[in-house]
């Protein structure tokens, strides 16, 4: 059975845990702890190790979903989980301070996974702010990393349907990259173009 391993990354409160819960077909393994940092995200709990869920996209393909803690103090979990992943579904909450800069910062953080498979960005909680134009994100990314192709969509992390669309976009990108690599006979990730 073919497998995809996808990492859900992005800042605390963006909706990584919500998204994995909305998507997973199995009971999600979660590691929530009481949140002592209500100023960053006002919610009762926060992920401190990982979220894990699974979905079958058809008879032959399974997707493993791993969510990481958003806070940088848990970046050792980012490293551990990024090793197994083929792509990143990056969620950024539009109601945070400087969401555009945050998106770019996380793209850079996980750039090795862009080269290996792909990254897509889901802009969440856009309903809570007066304007969250995805063009702003796309333009900022294009300025910062001209050669990089990263789709940006507005999503509600709680919506199975919307998250599925974003996930399938990412998987299509990964499969395309793998097909190209196979046809020219190089390993994915080797010789890829770097940002700047």
């Amino acid at each position: 059975m073919a497998e995809h391993v996808i990492l859900f990354a992005g800042p605390m409160g963006a909706g990584k845990t919500s998204a994995i819960r909305a998507l997973s077909e199995i009971d999600v393994v979660s590691t929530e702890a009481a949140n002592s940092d209500r100023t960053v995200a006002d919610k009762p709990t926060t992920t401190v190790a990982l979220d894990y869920g699974e979905i079958g996209i058809n008879e032959a393909e399974k997707v493993r979903l791993y969510g990481v803690p958003g806070q940088r103090r848990f970046d050792f979990m980012w490293t551990i989980l990024a090793e197994r992943a083929e792509g990143v579904l990056l969620l950024v909450n539009a109601d945070a301070d400087n969401p555009v800069e945050t998106a770019i910062e996380y793209v850079k953080e996980f750039f090795a996974l862009y080269e290996r498979g792909g990254i897509v960005i889901g802009l969440t909680r856009a309903d809570l702010v007066p304007r969250a134009l995805i063009e702003e994100y796309a333009n900022a990314l294009a300025d910062e990393m001209p050669d990089v192709m990263i789709p940006v969509l507005t999503v509600d992390a709680r919506s199975q349907e919307e998250m599925m669309t974003l996930l399938m976009t990412l998987i299509a990108n990964i499969e395309l990259k793998q097909a190209v690599a196979d046809s020219i006979g190089v390993g994915v990730g080797s010789g890829g173009r770097r940002a700047r």
């Binding site: 949140n35 002592s36 940092d37 401190v48 803690p69 103090r73 848990f74 050792f76």
Partner: peptide
């Protein structure tokens, strides 16, 4: 704290208390 903030620590100056707390939390 269970979400990985160091409240207090003793001994071992060679350890990074924030990192130790985060890893213990995970």
């Amino acid at each position: 704290t269970e979400d990985g903030f160091s409240v207090v620590s003793v001994a071992g100056k060679e350890f990074d208390s924030d990192r130790f707390a985060s890893m213990a939390s995970s």
